[in-house]
């Protein structure tokens, strides 16, 4: 076990890393991404308004985008950035359709609560 406190592993000892931060370690970014992802997940579980739930899903997607870009920098090629780009595009398409669905449901049911769709219960 490598230790309970996350360290910036693989962090090169550059004292002037503040300017470009290109030599900064990857781990802090990954950890941040993990934290944001978790917060997004808990948000999905806890909020009842369908739109807020959707927003938490967007947060999770953004967190994974951050991880992708960090790894792109770590590996030295732009594939991660391309992936992040595609994620953004797909997220956009998803939001469009998802919000249209929420709107339609709201029109018929007059309620945007996630808990209302509970017909598949025992």
């Amino acid at each position: 076990m490598m230790g309970l406190i996350p360290l910036a592993v693989g962090d090169p000892t550059t004292p002037t890393a503040a300017s470009s931060a290109s030599q900064m370690g990857a781990t802090p970014f990954i950890v941040l991404s993990a934290i944001l992802f978790t917060i997004g997940a808990v948000g999905v579980l806890t909020r009842r308004n369908a739109i807020v739930v959707f927003m938490c899903v967007e947060l999770m997607l953004n967190a994974s985008n951050l991880a992708l870009i960090t790894f792109s920098r770590a590996n030295g090629n732009l594939d991660g950035q391309i992936a992040a780009f595609f994620v953004m595009v797909v997220a956009a398409a998803e939001v469009v359709v998802g919000l249209a669905i929420i709107m339609t449901i709201f029109r018929t049911r007059r309620s945007a609560s996630v808990d209302d769709a509970s017909l598949l219960k025992y």
Binding site: D11, Q23, M24, G76
Partner: peptide, 12 residues
């Protein structure tokens, strides 16, 4: 994630 050793950051 913290245990993952990313290695040296190559940079872009």
């Amino acid at each position: 994630v913290a245990q993952v050793s990313v290695g040296t950051v190559t940079g872009l």
